[in-house]
Design a protein around this nucleic acid. Structure first.
Lengths: 227, 227
DNA sequence: CCTTTGCTTAAACGATCGTTTAAATAGAAA
DNA sequence: TTTCTATTTAAACGATCGTTTAAGCAAAGG
């Protein structure tokens, strides 16, 4: 274990993160198919062969970069959910609390160390719509467990709702989030400049309210409170 | 004019729609960057040079195919909205009516002549998240006017709401639609098979309820009914 | 010191890309 | 039929792709 830490402290580790950072910026701007390994190499001041040495292939680089970015977000989601469960003392969580745990970490990730990096949000949203089939496996591995955990809480807070309805509406919440992330740069021009695309935190807050409202309305319309 | 009709009845027109159809299927399955002109040519039983002859370039083919598919959907949206305005007799429309006019034609387009073509829905959703910059101009031309018209009705039905809030929440409705379209094939595996991805009509109905609920909840939370 | 191991590099490989050129073909006009 | 224009075709162009090879380099172990 001490050896591993030592190894990862060598100059190779620096190259690896330089490649990852360059790849993230480029893939964000132009998609996975639109970026070449040579561009990644040039931007990271390395070599095409070096990227293949560290990541095996272009697919490997894409997968590693996504995991590197998404894993901390999911960890924060679970942390917020756990925190809320602790504070509720065993009682079912309010839906808006559940969705806050799901959506807030996205905004935190987007407002990183160097100020709001609104472009990163596009990357996550786009990774779901890219046709690359190898991404499906990654998404399954990254999100299946998270989805299951959040479904447990949704079930607890809606004991009368049908399983199918909960799935559909959680799907819509996620779809709203992904769609808003992927497209939010287009809002400013469409609103004639009225809505700024820089204020990520405001958007997330609005998004949480919208998602919780849509979820509640949809569940209630299908299964009215028993009477 | 008679000459144009005659011209468009020549064998060239047949080639053109064969190319468009082949392009639609391929782009749907693998994205714009993931499909080559040679594949389009092979699938349409033509030639690479023929596609360039008719569409000028790969970009031209993509643009023409999108317009060919989206224009009828937008026409149907405006028709439904007009129909609703006629039936309401000058009174502001209910939000759910507005969103039905916006979302229902998508489902109709997806359940085409040869039964539900659920894959087409991905294409529309993806066209918004693809990084290809030339698509932004197309989207502006295809959707700006539509957006303006629907905003007019939203304003009429929410006279007390602030312009900015209406924009944000219309954006969320569109984001939900696009996200749901682009990702809806992933719902089935994530739900363990409980939610089928074939029943497009059911999804659209659920989507309308969700969107209207989210919109209403969000507008009300920000600006409570005057009291 | 030298060897070994992990990492980096330049150069090349074969394949395939979007696009173009120029010749062949078809259908309407004459 | 002959002429002319519109369409289709085969072949090639130059560029660039992801990946690999093999040589060079740095640092730790002996």
């Amino acid at each position: 274990m001490a050896e591993e830490l030592k190894k990862s402290a060598t100059r190779a580790a620096g190259t690896k993160v330089r490649i990852l950072t360059a790849a993230e910026h480029l893939f964000t701007a132009r998609g996975f198919a639109g970026v070449t390994m040579r561009e990644v190499a040039r931007r990271s001041a390395t070599n095409v062969a070096s990227a293949h040495y560290h990541f095996g292939s272009k697919e490997g680089l894409v997968i590693e970069m996504l995991r590197h970015r998404i894993a901390p977000i999911n960890a924060e989601r679970l942390r917020l959910l756990d925190e809320a469960k602790h504070q509720s003392g065993g009682k079912p969580l309010e839906p808006i609390v559940i969705f806050t745990a799901l959506l807030l970490p996205i905004g935190q990730a987007a407002t990183g160390s160097k100020g709001p990096d609104s472009r990163f949000m596009q990357l996550v949203g786009r990774s779901f719509t890219e046709p690359a089939s190898f991404l499906e496996k990654v998404h399954r591995r990254l999100f299946q467990e998270l989805s299951d955990i959040f479904m447990v809480e949704l079930r607890r807070s809606h004991p009368d709702a049908q399983e199918e309805d909960l799935f559909w509406n959680l799907h819509f919440v996620v779809a709203t989030m992904l769609g808003a992330l992927a497209n939010h740069r287009r809002l400013a021009p469409f609103s004639g400049g009225l809505c700024k695309d820089k204020d990520v935190a405001e958007m997330i807050q609005r998004l949480i309210v919208f998602a919780a409202g849509g979820f509640a309305s949809s569940i209630e319309n299908i299964k009215p409170r028993s009477n």
